[in-house]
Design a binder for these strands. Structure first.
Length: 883
DNA sequence: TATGTCACG
DNA sequence: ACGTACGTGACATAC
């Protein structure tokens, strides 16, 4: 006859939650309790093969036990939000498994389980109770065994009357008496003070029950125990009552109704995929339905380049509208690195080519440059750039797995193809690090393995594309991919190909000057310190300043004294060395990063600097720039700003045009918050910081001092960053209270902004993510965290990301539109750089007026907001002069 | 490889 | 009370 399994849902979920690290899926949903619970459930289904099964949950906060003892469970910590959020998922899980779960107001899971074991007993049915709670041992009998979880999660220990006897020399019923005497801190059952497990067991072995113990208090040895037993006799009786599982819960169903018929494969698969329980999917060998079949994955059919395969693939390439996946592998991360191989894949077969094969095969080159021949790739821009450096043209990239997966979760940044494959349960692709080895151990495996690895990449791209695309559609992100990111990758590629001309001689000359000043400063600092040391070492510098010179310690880092610029600025009055150090730092930075650093990356052939724009890194949708970073060329201090004199047009007589959005983030905020005052300010084109000062300090325009404007500006920054009084106070060097007042006054005027901040955080808590105007999405896994720090950070991010992200959306649109129009009008001028809210061009002298109009107009109308967008422009012979 | 610092928006 | 401003990348030092 079959068995009945009864699972204590709350207990198992709790055990799993605390036994496992706080796992979460890429949407930031915590899954550890669900994962552990699922593991135990699978083990039970597998090993016991129950005929009937039920999961019982505790219902509500108040049970009948509270009527007797209102402190019941009083000391128990509140369930952390990371766990409580997982209970609805457990219900989903059980529904997919088609397992009955049950809870009843006023009762705990124990009582439901106790009642069912009683019923089962009358039907002579063997029952197994699964729990982490020792109290349940009282239910054990010849027909009922208790499976207690042990350390870890899937290890259980089975208890029947015999095991309880062996361990405690008690009958199951006496477990209740044990609790009555010793109590239970986790449920706040008091027991008798001074009596722990040892004493309780001794007493019960002698007298048998709480009542009998109390009846024989006089005989008991030990003065303190005797005393406590008589003082707390009532409490002992009450404790016993509390520990007794109630076995007559009115249940409206029969055991027959708990029959287990197996799980719903499709639903279980769907949940496991969503929660990223990949190993469990494997374990269940679920038929993946519309998902990838492993046997299909493992079977590559790789063709190498022969006369025969050439004929076959010529036919395939000529099928025009049939898309193919394309992958180019290089020996390193740069697009200038040597090509190791090129692969193509359709549904069933792959073709592997060397770069020489490509050169020998004009039909393939034609296919590559045919814009109507659809290509699917991983990293469109890189693909284009690698071919570019090899003098090969490519058009017609219609899908990019990297950009697609970035849009699905930008917080992951750029993920490797092998990681994306894993996310979709394609297990066949090794990571590059695993395949090639890393660091000094890196080497290229033999040709056959290399062919397979590279071919497999094309295969993965081909098979994953529909899955990524479906998810994009589901999240309303496909338009962002097709209308923004993919076209933008072409624009960025063009910018990278052109590069920026740098006046090498000028840079070197500036370097010599800086070097001399640095040398002088170094000597002066040694003189003032009275000793030579490494000024670049925060550790050594800290020792000099704070130990040797005894300057006051303002701030500490986790490893020692802080010597950052804001600390040093406060120390300036104390010692002349400080000013010299600040100057040294400033020049040192210029020299190493901007003189040496830039000279290093001037391309030997083109004599220009070709940065790489990263389109899939930031969590907000902004671009980033590397090798070198051309988005952080100095401007704030004049000494550094001079670096920009070295950035010049690449053709004689051309000019540099810089066009920047004025206050784009605050304008975006005005739009999305729909704040009346802010909108009005921008419609009247007011100086926004002055306007803020007028409102926050309640003065007339002519009364606004420069200090007030500066402070108002900081408040505006604070608003965009997700305001906090502490942050503002640090920035302005004022007290937290004062900062708080500024914020209050700001919100008193800008109601709409206040409302927006409140709404967006609320929405993030509910949805788990925030979005930009173009639906770009960022998940905020910590928004409901019980950890104050994590939660606060997520809240500020919720406020900031729609603003920063929408601004990023807008300039991306502008770049695409500007590039389109320049092409349409056959202009020779070129877009060179993007720096978040500005675009830098080099302009042909004949096109200056046309470009000025085109750029300004296009940028200002890239997206229609309920405030005007404003663009300022400057032109000059160098980037420095375009100010 | 991690940390502190500093360049930019 | 908790302890931070949002988003990046490069360099030097110390581990």
């Amino acid at each position: 006859m079959g068995k009945l399994v009864l699972i204590d849902g709350n207990s198992i979920a709790n055990r799993a939650f605390y036994a496992l690290p706080l796992l979460s899926n890429r949407q930031g949903i915590y899954t550890n309790a669900v994962y552990g619970f699922t593991q135990i459930l699978l083990k039970i289904l597998d090993e016991i093969k129950p005929e009937y099964i039920l999961v019982a949950f505790d219902a509500g906060k108040v049970t009948f036990r509270h009527a007797d003892f209102k402190e019941y469970k009083g000391k128990r910590l509140q369930t952390p939000s990371e766990l409580s959020g997982q209970f609805p998922m457990l219900r989903e899980l059980l529904e997919a498994f088609q397992i009955t779960y049950f809870e009843l107001n006023g009762y705990e899971a124990d009582d439901i389980i106790g009642t069912l074991t009683k019923t089962a007993e009358t039907e002579n049915l063997d029952t197994i109770v699964v729990t982490g709670d020792k109290d349940m041992l009282q239910l054990a009998s010849d027909h009922v065994s208790i499976y207690l979880t042990r350390k870890g999660i899937t290890e259980v220990e089975a208890y029947g009357p015999k095991q309880i006897k062996d361990k405690y020399q008690l009958t199951p019923k006496q477990i209740i008496d044990l609790k009555g005497l010793m109590g239970d801190t986790s449920d706040n059952i008091p027991g008798v003070p001074g009596i722990g497990e040892k004493t309780a067991l001794k007493l019960l072995h002698q007298y048998g029950s709480v009542e009998e113990v109390l009846a024989h208090i006089d005989e008991i040895s030990g003065k303190k125990i005797k005393e406590n037993l008589s003082i707390y006799r009532e409490q002992a009786i009450l404790s016993k009552q509390l520990a007794t599982i109630f076995r007559d819960v009115p249940l409206q169903f029969s055991i027959e109704q708990l029959t287990y018929h197996g799980f719903d494969q499709e639903k279980v698969y769907e949940l496991f995929s969503k929660w990223e329980f990949h190993s469990l999917i494997e374990r269940l060998e679920i038929d993946k339905g519309e998902n990838i079949h492993q046997d299909q994955i493992l079977q590559l059919k790789i063709n190498s380049f022969t006369d025969e395969s050439k004929q076959i693939w010529n036919t395939i390439l000529n099928q025009g509208d049939q898309p193919l996946a394309l992958h180019v592998e290089t020996n390193g991360e740069n697009s200038t690195d040597k090509i190791l191989g090129i692969s193509l894949s359709n549904d069933t077969e792959q073709l592997f080519l060397s770069i020489e094969n490509v050169m020998d095969w004009p039909e393939f080159q034609n296919w590559l440059k045919n814009p109507d021949a659809a290509k699917w790739v991983y990293d469109a821009k890189r693909t284009e750039m690698v071919f570019f450096w090899n003098h090969i043209q490519i058009e017609g990239i219609q899908f990019d797995l990297l950009l697609g997966s970035y849009l699905l979760n930008p917080s992951d940044g750029a993920v490797f193809l092998s990681d994306i494959a894993k996310q979709y349960n394609y297990m066949g692709l090794q990571s590059d690090e695993g395949f090639y080895g890393k660091g000094a151990k890196r080497e290229i495996p033999e040709q056959n393995l290399l062919m397979e690895h590279i071919s497999r990449k094309a295969h993965v791209i081909y098979h994953l594309k529909p899955f990524i695309e479906n998810k994009l559609i589901e999240n309303q992100l496909s338009e962002l991919l097709y209308a923004v990111e993919l076209p933008l990758s072409r624009v960025l590629a063009k910018m990278e190909k052109i590069g920026v001309k740098v006046d090498e001689e000028r840079l070197k000359l500036m370097g010599v000057e800086i070097e001399q000043t640095l040398k002088k400063l170094t000597e002066e600092i040694y003189e003032l310190a009275g000793v030579e040391f490494n000024i670049n070492s925060p550790k050594q510098l800290g020792e000099i300043l704070f130990d040797k010179l005894q300057l006051p310690i303002m701030k500490k880092t986790k490893t020692g004294y802080s010597t950052s610029a804001d600390v040093l600025e406060k120390l300036e009055p104390y010692h002349p060395i400080i000013g010299q150090i600040l100057h040294y730092r400033q020049l040192g930075k210029l020299y190493s990063t901007y003189i040496e650093g830039l000279l290093k990356v001037i391309h030997p052939k083109t004599k220009r600097i070709h940065t790489t724009f990263n389109q899939a890194i930031t969590a907000t949708g902004r671009l980033s720039s590397t090798e070198p970073n051309l988005q952080n060329i100095p401007i704030r201090l004049e000494e550094g700003r001079k670096i920009r004199q070295a950035f010049i047009p690449s053709e004689p007589d051309w000019l540099i045009l810089a066009a920047d959005y004025s206050q784009i983030e605050l304008r975006v905020l005005a739009h999305i918050s729909n704040d009346e005052k802010l909108i009005e300010a921008f419609q009247k084109d007011m100086d926004i910081h002055t306007k803020t000062a007028i409102d926050v300090f309640r003065v007339n325009e002519d009364e606004v001092t420069s200090l007030m404007r500066r402070q108002a500006k900081a408040v505006n920054f604070g608003i965009v960053y997700g305001i906090s009084d502490y942050g503002l106070s640090q920035n302005l060097n004022i007290s937290r209270k004062e900062a708080g007042e500024f914020i209050d006054r700001y919100f008193a005027v800008f109601h709409g902004v206040k409302q927006y901040m409140k709404d967006i955080v609320e929405r993030a808590k509910k949805e788990g993510y925030v979005s930009t105007l173009l639906h770009r999405r960022r998940y905020l896994p910590d928004i409901n965290s019980s950890n104050f720090n994590l939660r606060s950070f997520a809240e500020r991010t919720a406020m900031n990301t729609p603003i920063q992200g929408t601004a990023a959306d807008i300039i991306k649109l502008a770049m695409i539109q500007v590039a389109e129009q320049m092409e349409q009008k056959h202009l020779r001028s070129r877009l060179l750089l993007q720096v978040h809210d500005e675009l830098i061009f080099e302009v042909h002298p004949d096109e200056i007026d046309e470009m000025k109009v085109l750029v300004k107009d296009t940028m200002e109308h890239a997206l229609d907001l309920n405030v005007p967008l404003k663009v300022d422009m400057n032109i000059g012979k160098t980037w420095y002069e375009a100010k």
